[in-house]
């Protein structure tokens, strides 16, 4: 039998964290941009969910985050959604080797995901318009963004992980009561 309460709780919790992170990305962090770039908060969320919780939650949240980015972008509608789904899926493959107490792997994965995201945006939207100097964009946009994202993820990584634990705990408690 499917219980609805934990499902609703999960949806609310995930919706809330997507909301907060999206507002952070679009309204707060652009004010504190370094070297002309602001961090990619959505990548932190999608990537972390991918390797901590599995490919399916990663992809689902990735789709929602991507669609949000698409709504507030002026390019091809659906592009960010696709990129985020791919990133959620790829990060899901690392769930087997992820242990919560080690920060090296999460930071590495978040950084790599951000570079991958940059690479895909470049391929989808820049190459076709004849902007072929990839090394330039790599050094001046993708790398600084990845570094800044990793720095920010030192803080923003924990709410995602603890949300997970909190949900798991409250589900267990409910099961014990029931």
């Amino acid at each position: 039998m499917i219980e609805f309460r934990p499902i609703v709780k999960t949806i609310v919790a995930y919706g809330f964290i997507i909301f907060v992170y999206f507002v952070l990305q679009t309204a707060l962090f652009p004010r504190f941009s370094l070297a002309g770039v602001s961090p990619n908060i959505m990548i932190i969320l999608v990537s972390t969910l991918g390797f901590a919780k599995g490919a399916n939650p990663g992809m689902t949240v990735g789709l929602i985050c991507g669609l949000l980015l698409d709504i507030y972008a002026s390019g091809y509608f659906g592009m960010y959604a696709m990129i985020m789904v791919i990133i959620g899926f790829l990060n899901g493959a690392f769930r087997q080797v992820f242990f919560g107490d080690d920060m090296k792997l999460p930071l590495l994965l978040i950084g790599t995901s951000d570079l991958l995201y940059g690479g895909m945006v470049y391929i989808f939207t820049y190459i076709s318009r004849g902007r072929l100097d990839f090394p330039y964009y790599f050094m001046n946009l993708m790398m600084p963004e990845a570094v800044y994202t990793i720095l920010v993820s030192l803080i923003l990584y924990f709410p995602i992980i603890h949300l997970d634990e909190w949900l798991a705990k409250s589900e267990k408690r409910n099961q014990m009561v029931a």
């Binding site: 499917i2 399916n56 992809m59 659906g78 592009m79 696709m82």
Partner: peptide, 27 residues
Amino acid sequence: RGKINIPSKVLFYVLVIMCAMLLALNY
């Protein structure tokens, strides 16, 4: 809890195709 578990590869293809359809629709 008896939830249906969708294989992530299947979900991946479904979502990517969905996004591709959105892109086509946008185009």
